[in-house]
Write a protein that binds this DNA or RNA. Structure first.
Lengths: 120, 120
DNA sequence: AATATAAATAGTAATAATTCCTATTACTGT
DNA sequence: ACAGTAATAGGAATTATTACTATTTATATT
């Protein structure tokens, strides 16, 4: 993969926030540095970075969010303020379990827990 | 809520399959019985049925799928054949855990595990 | 059974998220 | 410096979903 300043910027934006941003948020942030950047470029590079394991994509209901944290982890989503918090649910155990019980080779386990966070 | 034959049909379609169908699949199935049914009607009723706890909505990446099984459960998704299988991961324990560790009141826990199923 | 009314529908337009397409641009190896 | 290749911008196209509105229909009331 060749270097591109657009991709570098997109990577830095994702890596510079804990807010689990959407593509649209990243696009708006990127426009401030490269005013003519397009959504196509944002999506293409986010997918590329995800495929290369540089960042991680996950889904909050039906919209994609992007995470600098590529280590396996899970999310708490507050239904009141929308805040998404990283947590760790030891998915290794689940991975073993689905293999033993269902002979299913898990390569990705996503746990999203919604409810009410400790600010409410 | 008033009776409608459209909603009744939609409910029966969802309750008659284990395939975790999309709105579009349900729409096509419904058209065979009520040829002029519209997508708006399908979505409106699926949401209504979900809100009433008659069926359950969940998200497979960025698309909505509908499930007759309203008891809390989880899903295995095969990356080769796309098949989605119901499993049970005892999320009660996770619910306790996030309360103890994070003081987070979980009301919904979604676990989606993707990988390769036992047909491959 | 006829009527009123409130709710649901069909059909379509609008929106939102994402992917696709193509002419153009710009790294990189020679 | 130049050619070849890969990435880009910008916009069109697609897909999923929601919103709007005139019309129809289920149900309660007479």
């Amino acid at each position: 993969m060749r270097f591109s300043k657009q991709r570098e910027l997109i990577q830095h934006i994702v890596q510079g926030t804990n807010s689990h941003p959407t593509a649209y948020w990243i696009f708006n942030k990127a426009k401030k540095k490269i005013s003519n950047i397009s959504m196509g470029t944002v999506y293409r590079n986010l997918n590329k970075l995800n495929n290369d394991g540089v960042i991680k994509i996950f889904y909050d209901n039906n919209i994609a969010r992007y995470d600098w944290n590529t280590v396996a982890h899970d999310h708490l989503k507050c239904n009141k303020c929308g805040k998404i918090t990283d947590i760790n649910m030891h998915t290794k155990e689940l991975q073993k379990k689905v293999w033993n019980q269902y002979k299913f080779e898990a390569d990705n386990i996503e746990i999203t827990i919604s409810g009410i966070c400790n600010n409410h």
